[in-house]
Amino acid sequence: MTDSVPKRSGLNSLFQPRAKGVLLVSLALLIIAVVAVPWPLQPSAPTTRRFTMVSRQFEFEPNTIQVNQGDTVIITLTADDVVHGFFLDGYGVKMRVEPGQSQTVQFVADKSGKFRYRCSVSCGTMHPFMLGELVVGPNTTFGRAVALIGVVAIGVTVYLWKFPLREPGESTTEVRSKK
């Protein structure tokens, strides 16, 4: 037998919708804060970073490069086998390199986050998946993403704790025991 106990009564029922609103608004404000408030992390003093990169079917070596925001990045690219390209997401940096030659590109890593560089010249079957990663630190984008995940996970959990969901048509009483 189901023993249902009314959960909302008297003053409680007056405050319940307000409490729900407060919680939802708090969560929304927290999300906005995570996205918009500047992080206290300061990038270290800018330097010049040089990388010699080899491209071959279907990889770049090194496949990951890490720099700090504000660094001047100089990449010298060679091709080991066939013609390859280099396109850096977010920066629009492009070059094309033929086997036996090298090409150099220079840019200032002024945006933080993870950016993929990819082959931009059709070089064989796995060409669309020939990728590498430039991580410009401090990677606040990832930090904010992790914080958002925390806010959503904890926020939904707290919401469900305070305001148990009801199925359509179900009474708004708390089920205490089904036996």
Partner: peptide
């Protein structure tokens, strides 16, 4: 495998 930077893994899958 497909979106990561690891060429050796793509080679295995390929």
């Amino acid at each position: 495998v497909l979106l990561g930077p690891w060429g050796w893994l793509k080679g295995w899958a390929n």
